[in-house]
Design a protein around this nucleic acid. Sequence first.
DNA 1: CCCTTTAGTGATAATGGTTCTCATGAAGAT
DNA 2: ATCTTCATGAGAACCATTATCACTAAAGGG
Lengths: 132, 132
Amino acid sequence: MTSTDTAGPRRTRQRAAVSAAMGRNGEFRTAQEIHAALRDSGDSIGLATVYRTLAQLAEAHEIDCIRTPDGQAAYRRCSSGHHHHLICRNCGRTVEISPPAFEAWADQIASENGFTQIDHELELFGRCAACS
Amino acid sequence: MTSTDTAGPRRTRQRAAVSAAMGRNGEFRTAQEIHAALRDSGDSIGLATVYRTLAQLAEAHEIDCIRTPDGQAAYRRCSSGHHHHLICRNCGRTVEISPPAFEAWADQIASENGFTQIDHELELFGRCAACS
DNA sequence: CCCTTTAGTGATAATGGTTCTCATGAAGAT
DNA sequence: ATCTTCATGAGAACCATTATCACTAAAGGG
């Protein structure tokens, strides 16, 4: 443990499994669902580890985290760069969207009101064509 | 009980107390906080009733409901009409905002992707001038 | 004013997602 | 190989929210 310590998190089987599970699908899934999916596919992993790993991946911006309307946390691996989502309330299908002028608008509104360090939450929920 | 029944909810002491409590303040507060505040101010009221009443008031659009970043539901009485919020992450101070072109933009994005019955969630979190 | 009907109330239990605990296991360094 | 330290995971703890259900009290007719 030197002062020039650059050690990241340890590479474990569990961390790889969670990361792989996130890579395989394109919909938001809750930690519970991801845990169940991993167990079903034969990976032995604890629920606490799934929660921890997802939180860390989100912290590192490797995956995105949103709140479902009923308050649960849901995760999804996304393209890099900032963007938002259009989510089907029925089947969970997700489309990434990038409001062109939105970021600038948000910053302007914020500064007009004296706010700084702005973070925003924007998600659209609806019904996709298949579910309508 | 005729067929032309237009009876709304009954006027009870508890419902009045919750509604009054929401009228007195301008910040988002959780159901737990509102319950504690009512108890502290001498109103005897059950927690379940607070939850029920808040849910009903929100359903009737008399108050707004958002999710805090940690998943809790928070309520606030707002001006009528659709709008969003700019919320101080530190002190909870709230500013109502009304993105002029936002609704139209959201509908357009949705229909471009075949989505219908769009609902959206937009909140800005930051630090107000006093807390910076 | 009294009675009946029925929605509202509230103490408490149940639920369920998330976090904590801590003994055990494994990654990485020496 | 050994040692240090972080990661893991089973289960408990936590906590917001919802359900239960016996009791209370609005509303409205008599």
